[in-house]
Amino acid sequence: MYGLLELETDRFTLRKIEDGDLETLHSYWSDEVVTEYMNATFKSIEETQQMVELLNILPEIGEGRRWAIVDKRSGSVLGTCGYHNMKAEHRRAEIGFELGREYWGRGIMQEVMNIVIPHCFEDLGLNRIEAFVTVGNYRSLKALEKLGFKQEGVLREYEFTQGNFRDQVVLAILRSDWGNQI
């Protein structure tokens, strides 16, 4: 099993995505503003269900974990975050995250990723955490840079998403980078 089942910050709980989260996540994943830089905008609840099933199987196949971000006060699911494409032999993984747009700009991702990153380094023994950000997604770039990620380059036309080839900015943080921030 890869990673802890739940993580907590002062304001949020990171837990497994549950069936009861489908409607909320579908509202985010079908919002073209939220998904502008993601792989797809979902049209049906069935697509959301398939994605949740895929994300929830990641720990079983040793490739990562995705959590629902839950506000402790309201119990609302605000989005998801986690790691995937884990390569244990190379001690690296890729992170990903999204929030419903009504939660943007509130420091939520900074708070939750400040518990996910040390979990990856300390509990999973990773040495490198990568992120791939579609060119133009300045919010995600800024959030990652605040967390200590460094840009390493641009992969030209790296992904074919939403009907177009898109360039991806590669960022990474190393265990030694993280240790220097503490």
Rank of each mutant, 00 (worst) to 15 (best):
M51A: 15
I45M: 06
P59Q: 06
K87P: 00
D21S: 08
E53N: 15
N85F: 08
S74E: 10
Q151G: 09
F97A: 04
N85G: 05
A88Q: 05
A68M: 06
F97Y: 14
F149E: 08
K16A: 12
G136N: 07
E145A: 07
Q50K: 15
R91Q: 04
S76R: 06
I57K: 12
L55C: 11
E122K: 12
A172V: 05
T41E: 05
Q50I: 08
L99A: 01
I61W: 06
V77N: 04
E122A: 09
E145T: 09
L14E: 00
K72H: 00
V33W: 09
Y138M: 10
L14S: 00
E130C: 11
E32P: 12
R156S: 15
H119S: 07
F160S: 15
L25I: 12
G62A: 09
N85T: 07
I108E: 01
M86E: 03
Y83P: 01
E36N: 05
E102C: 03
V33L: 10
L141R: 14
N114Q: 14
A88T: 04
E32V: 09
F149A: 09
Q151S: 12
E157W: 14
F160T: 13
E18Y: 07
Q181C: 02
Y37A: 03
I95W: 10
T134K: 11
I182W: 03
R166E: 08
V34G: 10
K142H: 14
E94D: 08
N39V: 13
G64R: 10
T35L: 05
V135Q: 13
L99S: 01
A131K: 15
T161S: 15
G136P: 03
I57E: 12
F149K: 11
D19I: 06
G62V: 07
D19M: 06
G64Q: 05
V133T: 13
R175P: 00
T41I: 09
I108A: 02
N114A: 13
